[in-house]
Nucleic acid binder design. Structure first.
Length: 498
RNA sequence: GUCCCCAUCGUCCAGAGGCCUAGGACGUGGCCCUUUCAAGGCUAAAACGCGGGUUCGAAUCCCGCUGGGGACGCCA
């Protein structure tokens, strides 16, 4: 079994395409097949090496590695269409020689006018067949006159083209509705429908899994397989990924490219797991499965027929799950960039990374994305008693009759660093005994003084984290962290001024 | 307009003629836990688009309608 993913490098990898790549990968890996990456860069105007590099990078990040492709090569290379031009030329000649193709001299303007006219008449806007039966003499004359024709494939008349789609069953088209496609452009570059056929045949692809938008290309490709004497592969057409308004997922729905999800702090296994479940079910009740498990359960025939709506909420849920499952060290490495951006750490020193790793477990259960982690532990790095008290919800803490007593006791009780939860709890208990405050009345003022916020992670985790940070030496390259001792005094002072 | 594809809770799936009083997950509501916000646990509401057949029996098969999507490029 040989499968391929064939993106055109004209932009970032879209999640819909990533899903197509994933389904190909899952089938290849579940069946001990070969997964091939081919770059479809015949559109010279829009294709760039930057996009290609980006797409390869995104696929690797997702964990969708390939056995043959432009960077690894293999027995059926090259794997970039722009490097296979001689092959297309040779097969185009073969088609011309067999009268399966012909020169078409119609100008783009003419074609466009024809199309409009047909549409206005309520007719299908396909190619009219103007140049289908030009005499050899006229062809030669126009060639000699310097005209640059395209080559069109001659679609046989009056036949039905049918194929067994692996996900949809039998699909039939009448050749009457298929107009002669361009296979070679006037500048000699091959056109998509032709290049895929040549490549899939030469690369011995056995299963073509692609988007539903290609379903109507399939009959003309099948006809070309026939004319070229190739055995066609099996086809499977995946329904498209839509936005909440049932239109194809696009920028106005928010993030759509793998790079953007990566940027925003989604973990690759979350995106992979989510995408796999969009249009397919591994069976049973579990949905959170590693990619290898997804592969071993994957059957292309089980893929759903209808379009799926991309649900960011469910993705977020999966991402939370995988963030909680990730090791603190990995989390620190993955989210360091956001801490750098926020200015909370100045450099990725081993001490800074270790400190981040110690900080993350308390934050990770309550955010959707890595990007949101710094905000969740902001209180550690950016503490300002005066600014905090300027906020109504913090000032309101003082309304509680016992609050000032708690704050006074707090300032006296913190005499040194509180480096573990036991010392914090012991201190909280001493304040409780001294002031008679408990529960909310006890902890709210403490939280306000220690973090400057009205909510956040549990205090017996947060407080030691603050003092561990405050103890970090300057060489650790973490922005200066005010200790709990300093905070208590600073907050008490700011309170007196109110 | 023509051709093709599709149709189960708001969303993603399960369901391959009786196991369906239609199951799970996300989301939503409620309750519990709790020093807060989350998280977590429990729980509730929530769907077979419509109309005809076939059959003893249809979410499941057939036809039509409606609705949605795709294609109709010297883009891929």
């Amino acid at each position: 079994m040989r499968l391929r993913f064939a993106p055109s490098p004209t932009g970032q990898l879209h999640v819909g395409n990533a899903r197509t790549a994933l389904f190909n990968w899952l089938l290849a890996h579940g069946k001990e097949g070969t997964f091939i990456l081919r770059i479809e860069d015949t559109d010279a105007e829009r294709s760039t090496r930057e996009s290609e590099a980006g797409i390869l990078d995104d696929l690797r990040w997702l964990g969708l590695d390939w056995d043959e492709g432009p960077d690894v090569e293999g027995p059926h290379g090259p794997y970039r269409q722009s490097e296979r031009l001689h092959l297309y030329a040779s097969y185009a000649n073969e088609l011309m020689a067999g009268n399966h193709a012909y020169y078409c001299f119609c100008s783009p303007q003419q074609l466009d006018a024809d199309r409009r006219a047909r549409l206005d008449e309520g007719l299908p806007p396909g190619y009219l067949g103007t140049c289908r039966n030009l005499s050899p003499e006229e062809v030669q004359r126009r060639l000699d006159a310097g005209e640059r024709p395209v080559i069109r494939f001659r679609v046989p008349e009056g036949v039905d083209v049918a194929f067994q789609d692996l996900v949809r069953g039998e699909v039939t088209f009448s050749s009457a509705v298929i107009s002669d496609p361009v296979i070679v452009r006037s500048d000699g570059r091959p056109q998509y429908n032709f290049a895929v056929v040549v490549d899939d045949a030469l690369m011995e692809i056995t299963h073509v899994i692609r988007g539903e938008d290609h379903i109507s290309n399939t009959p003309r490709q099948l006809l070309m397989y026939q004319a070229l004497g190739f055995t066609p592969p099996h086809f499977a057409h995946l329904s498209l990924v839509m936005g909440p308004d049932h239109t194809p997922l696009s920028k106005r729905h928010g993030a759509t490219s793998v790079a953007q999800f990566r940027e925003r702090g989604y973990l690759p296994e979350a995106l992979v797991n989510y995408l796999a479940l969009l249009g397919w079910s591994p069976g049973g009740d579990e949905e959170l499965l590693p990619i290898g498990e997804l592969a071993s359960r994957f059957e292309i025939e089980d893929v759903g027929h209808s379009a799926g709506i991309f649900d960011p909420e469910k993705l977020a849920w999966m991402n939370r799950h995988y963030m909680k499952a990730a090791s603190p060290g990995r989390l620190a490495a993955e989210s360091a960039r956001y801490f750098l951006q926020a200015g909370y750490i100045l450099q990725r020193t081993p001490e800074a990374m270790e400190y981040l790793a110690s900080l993350l477990p308390m934050a990770v259960g309550s955010v959707d994305r890595l990007e949101e982690i710094p905000e969740r532990v902001r209180f550690v790095f950016a503490y300002d008693a005066v600014a905090a008290l300027a906020r109504p919800e913090i000032a309101a803490v003082l309304d509680d009759p016992g609050a000032r007593a708690v704050l006074a006791a707090l300032a006296e009780e913190i005499t040194g660093p509180l480096l573990d939860r036991e010392s914090f709890r012991a201190m909280a208990n001493r304040i409780k005994d001294r002031t008679g405050q408990k529960g909310k009345s006890l902890f709210h003022p403490i939280r306000a003084a220690m973090t400057g916020e009205g909510g956040g992670p549990e205090l017996d985790l947060a407080v030691p984290a603050i003092d561990r940070g405050a103890a970090l030496a300057a060489g650790a390259r973490v922005s200066r962290i005010m200790s709990c001792h300093e905070r208590a005094r600073s907050f008490a002072r700011a309170t007196e001024k109110l």
